[in-house]
Computed example of a mutant assay.
Amino acid sequence: MSAAKQTAATPAKRPRDAQATRELLLAAATQEFAEYGLAGARIDRIAERAGANKRLLYVYFGDKDQLFDVVLQREAEKLATAVPLNAEDLVAFAAARFDYFLANPHVSRLATWRAFERAEPTESEQASYLQKVQAVEAAQRAGKVNPAIAAVDLFAMVLRISDSWLTAPRALLAVAEDHDSEGRINEHRAAVIAAVQSFTAVQ
């Protein structure tokens, strides 16, 4: 058979889109880690979710621990891009952060697993928080933010208040009627704004 006939008779294999496969694996890993954490996650399930050969997971990311690190870094970058810090307007920052976590509940679950299974902070995480605290200090010196509270404490309070309702114990949520209704969410968002305004505003 001639080369031309062989080409016509045998369909050419589609080249694998490595980037698309990598994205599918990352999306599947994000779901898996959010549900089961690092220890409970399974490579087989991640590959099955992604519809990919699990061998590719090792090729692209190394082992499960390295994959977890990539997922955490990726989600942190997404959050930073979607909710950039404006240290002179911490009220708007808290509201935007609340909205982001509401729309992306897996981020809170990943953060909980990360705190539970990886107690020690990385250098990049520390550097990121240091930069933010320094930005708050600069805003305090400029007279834009209440200087009576140390910047590191003030920023920690903003972070916790902004996701307080979304990470509250289920038993506490049950105390409020229709805790997941649009009206209750809007009420809590307004409470977040009022709370952050109360201790960040310059007196």
Score class of each variant (00 low, 15 high):
residue 153 D to K: 00
residue 59 V to C: 12
residue 156 A to P: 06
residue 80 A to Y: 07
residue 1 M to F: 14
residue 117 E to Y: 03
residue 30 T to V: 07
residue 119 A to H: 04
residue 200 T to M: 12
residue 49 R to C: 08
residue 135 A to C: 01
residue 60 Y to R: 15
residue 85 L to H: 14
residue 196 V to C: 13
residue 160 R to F: 06
residue 137 E to M: 05
residue 49 R to D: 03
residue 21 T to W: 12
residue 127 A to E: 07
residue 165 W to Y: 10
residue 69 D to S: 13
residue 45 R to I: 06
residue 181 S to H: 13
residue 113 W to L: 00
residue 107 V to L: 04
residue 153 D to M: 00
residue 26 L to R: 09
residue 112 T to S: 00
residue 3 A to F: 11
residue 113 W to I: 11
residue 146 N to K: 05
residue 19 Q to S: 12
residue 142 A to L: 13
residue 100 Y to G: 00
residue 145 V to K: 00
residue 102 L to S: 11
residue 136 V to L: 11
residue 172 L to D: 10
residue 116 F to G: 03
residue 89 D to I: 08
residue 59 V to H: 15
residue 183 G to D: 00
residue 30 T to Y: 01
residue 199 F to P: 05
residue 44 D to T: 00
residue 37 G to W: 07
residue 3 A to S: 12
residue 88 E to P: 08
residue 116 F to R: 08
residue 150 A to R: 04
residue 142 A to R: 01
residue 69 D to T: 15
residue 189 R to M: 01
residue 88 E to I: 10
residue 49 R to S: 04
residue 102 L to R: 07
residue 195 A to D: 09
residue 104 N to V: 04
residue 186 N to A: 13
residue 202 V to E: 07
residue 3 A to W: 04
residue 60 Y to P: 15
residue 147 P to G: 06
residue 179 H to D: 14
residue 115 A to N: 01
residue 141 R to I: 13
residue 106 H to S: 06
residue 110 L to A: 08
residue 127 A to R: 08
residue 14 R to H: 09
residue 60 Y to S: 15
residue 163 D to Q: 12
residue 14 R to S: 04
residue 129 Y to C: 02
residue 166 L to Q: 04
residue 127 A to G: 05
residue 182 E to I: 11
residue 153 D to I: 02
residue 6 Q to D: 01
residue 123 E to R: 00
residue 14 R to W: 13
residue 154 L to S: 01
residue 181 S to V: 04
residue 85 L to E: 14
residue 93 F to R: 04
residue 140 Q to F: 02
residue 2 S to H: 11
residue 173 L to W: 08
residue 133 V to G: 04
residue 173 L to A: 14
residue 44 D to G: 00
residue 84 P to R: 05
residue 134 Q to M: 02
residue 22 R to M: 03
residue 84 P to K: 03
residue 144 K to Q: 09
residue 13 K to N: 00
residue 180 D to N: 09
residue 188 H to K: 11
residue 74 R to N: 15
residue 122 T to F: 13
residue 56 L to I: 12
residue 15 P to T: 07
residue 64 K to N: 12
residue 189 R to G: 08
residue 193 I to P: 06
residue 109 R to C: 03
residue 150 A to I: 10
residue 2 S to Y: 05
residue 148 A to S: 09
residue 157 M to G: 13
residue 13 K to M: 09
residue 133 V to L: 02
residue 141 R to N: 02
residue 43 I to F: 01
residue 3 A to Y: 07
residue 148 A to P: 08
residue 144 K to P: 03
residue 30 T to A: 11
residue 155 F to D: 13
residue 76 A to F: 09
residue 4 A to P: 13
residue 98 F to G: 05
residue 116 F to L: 10
residue 24 L to Y: 00
residue 154 L to K: 14
residue 60 Y to K: 15
residue 187 E to C: 00
residue 55 R to Q: 05
residue 66 Q to L: 11
residue 114 R to M: 03
residue 115 A to L: 02
residue 178 D to C: 10
residue 121 P to F: 10
residue 55 R to M: 14
residue 74 R to T: 15
residue 10 T to L: 08
residue 184 R to N: 07
residue 122 T to D: 06
residue 158 V to E: 05
residue 132 K to F: 01
residue 86 N to R: 10
residue 112 T to I: 04
residue 178 D to W: 09
residue 54 K to W: 10
residue 74 R to K: 15
residue 154 L to F: 06
residue 186 N to I: 00
residue 69 D to A: 14
